[in-house]
Write a protein that binds this DNA or RNA. Structure first.
Lengths: 127, 127, 127, 127
DNA sequence: GTGGTCTAGACCACG
DNA sequence: GTGGTCTAGACCACA
């Protein structure tokens, strides 16, 4: 279902959050689709259900998915992107860190822009 | 000396590492410059010396600075960008996460590229 | 029949209970009126009959409706407001929580009173 | 420290959230005050640390408290109430439910307004 | 069957 | 010392 790396420093539940969002952007998951249940996904991924639940809760908080009582979890239908300045700042910060890293490795600016463009293409996926 | 935000989710020692590298890229710190001692910097920044120690260790590991016995710590003279594929992958990963975030907020691609360009300019600073 | 929101955090059966009581207060349902059967209502509202069952049981427990053997379910005729201290305390508690929430959002007291008055008007409805 | 009722239907972690906010409104807790550590409070209240952590995380998400790395948890200093329409709607809904309940018990409108005013006074506390 | 809450206990990163 | 994450396993409410 989702690619998880248990050795990564980013928590498993966050990796799941990211993977779900990426799947939606790529069109693998669509508005209204049923998500696997917490237990189901936990079994499939051999991960503790609590961890999945934490991921789902975060996704719900971000309005990416919706839970319907007793029926399960679904990709939100009414979702619409909202600019969130404070979250934008976090992203910018992480970008800045990455850019410093790259510059420090001696990567040229045009190369950097190329990398970014590649990544953007990758996100679009089969959409 | 360096801008540190104790509320940030990135560890303080990492913030210091980043700030040092940024200062070098901007030309504020140059090859061969003497770095303040751990104790000195800890006092100046009102930060636990252990934290500075950890930052210096990390910077040394990355060959950004060098310790010379009995003389102190200096910005490396032999600094030359070295591509490090595994580190590149980490950076790409963090970029990807950020890009997904932005796309998810409904930011257009041209806007994203604009943001990146701005950040690159910012890093160059007075260099 | 009744407005139900399956996404709401309040259980569906409770939403039904509330809607029935509101309808009575508004005069849409009156003493002695026949209620639809569990099956009927379940079909009409496309809701699990167990859920309707549970709602009816709760309404019966609160003496809002009565079951008459072989005849069906009716809005109670002997309805008369009874103060129930323990239930009052529950309501007060939920009010308190809401008021704290509003105060915390910086809503002024006069605004709060306005909101309450509006809601009271809304409940009266066409009565 | 905080009054918790383990039998209540509202989760313990939410009761803690509410209690903390109430304490702040009453002036018992003030901007910048240090909160007891997760483990400390868990011991004091004889509650599992995970439950406290959940409460703290929710409070942090609402910007009521701030965590500072390695130092502990503090009441936010820069807090300023923000109207949140969607949350307002939730509060209104719960008010409406309560009002229906009261009306149904035969409480008169002026009495209801009195109760609300009392509760508002109670929240202000010694502030 | 679904998700929500809570406990107990472990390991880790940070300062 | 602080909080963050994860696991394992239990009980409950809801549909």
């Amino acid at each position: 279902m989702f690619n998880i790396n248990p050795r990564s420093s980013t928590p498993i539940y966050m990796q799941i959050v990211d993977e779900v969002k990426e799947s939606i952007l790529k069109g693998i998951l669509e508005s209204g689709d049923k998500m696997p249940s917490v237990r189901e996904l936990a079994k499939m991924m051999i991960i503790n259900p609590n961890t999945i639940q934490k991921a789902y809760k975060e996704l719900e908080r971000q309005r990416v998915i919706e839970k319907i009582r007793g029926k399960g979890t679904f990709v939100s239908t009414d979702y619409e992107g909202k600019r969130d300045e404070s979250r934008m700042d976090l992203v910018k910060d992480s970008f800045k860190k990455g850019l410093i890293e790259l510059k420090y490795m001696g990567i040229r600016e045009d190369e950097i822009m190329g990398i970014i463009e590649e990544l953007i293409e990758e996100i679009k996926g089969g959409k």
